[in-house]
């Protein structure tokens, strides 16, 4: 039996119906058309489905859609402010921090959460902070550099 859920996604009030055993990721992708969050593993091991729920970084494959009731969810689709990209988005493009790009939404959401907690992370802190996001194309070098550069810009340094 489908359950009706009211929640907030990227600042918008959203209602959806879903099966109780559906993951938030499935709801986002299959019911709400928010396909920016990706399913790479469905077991919480790749981070491609990263979103923030009430300000906390999580894997949306490890949360049920029904749990979203009354929560505030932020996905990659909510990162840019209209036509203005988030500094992380800009820096990822500039530094070629993506090749295939399928891990990119998850990295961006995770990096945003990381910088919110730690605006001036060391390379090591960035590497450990993003260890839950797998990238198979880049070897992470340019991702780390993009995050460093975005952090610098966001600090106004």
């Amino acid at each position: 039996m489908a359950v009706l859920v009211s929640t907030t996604i990227n600042g918008d009030a959203v209602e959806f119906a879903c099966e109780p055993d559906e993951t938030l990721l499935d709801v986002l992708r299959n019911r709400l058309g928010l396909t920016g969050s990706k399913e790479g593993c469905a077991t919480g091991d790749c981070g491609a489905c990263s979103v923030e729920v009430d300000g906390r970084l999580i894997c949306s494959c490890l949360m049920l859609g029904v749990e979203a009731e009354d929560r505030e969810i932020e996905t990659v689709e909510g990162m840019a402010d209209g036509a203005t990209l988030h500094p992380l988005q800009t820096k990822f493009i500039e530094h070629a921090a993506l090749q295939c790009g399928v891990c990119t939404p998850g990295f961006l959401v995770a990096a945003k959460a990381l910088l919110a907690k730690n605006p001036d992370p060391s390379e090591e802190e960035i590497r450990f902070g993003l260890a839950g996001n797998l990238c198979r194309c880049t070897g992470y070098d340019k991702i780390v550099r993009a995050v460093q550069d975005a952090a610098k810009e966001m600090r106004g340094a």
């Binding site: 981070g47 995770a110 260890a131």
Partner: peptide, 9 residues
Amino acid sequence: IGSKQVQGR
């Protein structure tokens, strides 16, 4: 345990 994402839950 797991990743930052997993630790969020």
